Simulated scan of single mutants.
Amino acid sequence: MRGHLCGIRTAWTVAATAAEAVADVAAGIGPSRLSHLLAFFSPDYVVDDLNTALAGAFPGTPITGCTMSGGICPAGGLERGLVVVAFPEKGFRVVSAILDAIDHLDVARTASSVRALRRILETESPDAAPNRRFALSFIDGLANAEETVVSAIAWALDGIPLVGGSAGDDLNFRETVLLHQGSIHRRAAVVVLVETDYPFQIFKSDHFEPTTTKFVVTASDDEQRIVHELNAEPAAREYAMAVGLDPEALTPMSFAAYPLAVKVGGEYFCRSIRRMNADGSLSFFCAIDEGVVLTLAQPRDIVETTRSELTRLEAALGGIDLIIGFDCILRRLDAESRQVRQGICDLYRRYDVVGFETYGEQYRAMHLNQTFTGIAIGRLAAS
């Protein structure tokens, strides 16, 4: 449980039941006047119980939350539990909106909802500079709609920086859930717009670089994010041959260690594999279209690349008060397989990182994989 100079309070717990977990974090947050509460929680909690307990513990406070594939806190990575971030009324003005039925997204209505949030803040503080606002997105990680959702949100934000994460469920791929202001949602997304008096920067960090090995997607089901063929060969077999593995032995660890990337605007972005299917096809965490060229990526030092980005942020902000972060579940698997997860946890502790492990990350108008994104908030109020 921790308080920060900017007034944000954070708390986390690994309590077994929803009631116990909420009681723990409520005690950690303490009596406070809050503008908004973020809650990231394990899918094994009974979501109705959790929703009821949160409403009872934080009456009158707008609450946004989602299931996770692991928690992030200064104590390190949490395999399960509940992580909360409480924005104070002083120094933070927060508004939010739910976007339902995102697998059949109405782009115009989505843009209208986001613009309505902007108007609320602009009406409440007409003299605030545009660079005092940022947005967070939380998206159902199983709806296969992140690209459309984040593109529509970013378009309507008109330059306001956006970061976020896709809700996960511990690599079970059964159900992800979102909470918004007392209601439970599936196939949905939430956008949270924040105006603050404190300095901040959004960021992204990955630890891979492209190789010369290329794959062309020659057969795919774009809607389901399934690739049937790479280079006109069965997808799993072609991928396994390229990385020197037995196709029958492919696991989430394999996909974490050998991701694929796509080149967009001169920069490479990971397009991670979710699982191998019984027919030898590959399911992805991101949209993959037929004809796309995928590049096999090779790892760099995950601890050093993460440290480098956090050091840069610290210098740019003149000190970091805390970071709200969204880290791909495959980054954790890769760090574990290389036995360097403790190094990542040490960085979370040093920079007061709170957040959750995701099925995908959002950064500006992009949906990403195998990336660490977030918002770093500085220690001193802006002058």
Rank of each mutant, 00 (worst) to 15 (best):
T371L: 01
D301K: 06
G165I: 09
A235L: 10
I320V: 15
L99W: 07
P59R: 06
V25T: 10
G3C: 03
Y268P: 04
V243W: 07
R332V: 07
F87M: 08
L50E: 03
P259A: 01
T211E: 07
E238L: 05
M276N: 08
G81R: 06
C6S: 15
A297C: 12
A188W: 08
S254H: 03
H180W: 13
E290F: 07
G343W: 04
F255S: 01
L99M: 07
M253R: 04
L54P: 09
Y45R: 05
A256K: 02
Q298G: 11
S112G: 02
I375P: 02
L54A: 03
A128M: 14
Y348S: 01
A135K: 05
F255Q: 01
P199Q: 11
D140A: 00
E238N: 14
G266D: 09
E175P: 00
L368F: 13
T211G: 03
G265W: 12
E357I: 00
V177C: 06
N131F: 03
L380Q: 15
I102T: 13
I98C: 09
M68C: 10
F285E: 02
A365F: 11
P252W: 01
Y198K: 05
V95D: 07
T13V: 07
L5H: 10
A86L: 03
E79N: 12
R274Y: 08
A19T: 08
F200G: 05
V84D: 01
R118Q: 12
R349Q: 14
V150E: 10
S383G: 11
R93L: 03
F173V: 09
A235S: 10
Y239W: 06
A278W: 04
V216D: 13
Q370P: 11
V353I: 15
E20M: 07
G266V: 07
L171K: 08
E304L: 14
R132W: 01
L230K: 06
D221C: 09
E79H: 12
D321G: 09
I302Y: 04
P130K: 08
R80C: 03
A235I: 09
F215A: 11
G81L: 04
K204A: 11
V22I: 04
Q370L: 02
F134N: 10
L330E: 01
Q339K: 14
F372M: 12
V177H: 07
Y198H: 13
R174I: 05
D49I: 01
G265I: 07
R349H: 15
L34F: 13
D24A: 12
A55I: 06
R9P: 00
G159W: 14
G244A: 09
R115H: 10
A27I: 00
G30M: 01
P199H: 09
A167G: 11
L310M: 15
L34C: 08
I377K: 04
D301N: 15
G360D: 00
A11R: 08
C328E: 04
V14A: 10
S308T: 13
N231F: 12
E146K: 01
I323A: 04
S183P: 00
G65P: 10
T371F: 00
I302G: 07
I320K: 13
I202F: 05
I273G: 08
F41H: 02
A316V: 10
E20Q: 14
A111Q: 15
I329M: 13
V25L: 12
R379S: 12
A154Q: 11
R174Q: 13
V149F: 03
R2C: 02
L82V: 06
G164T: 14
T305P: 08
C328Q: 05
R350K: 14
E147C: 02
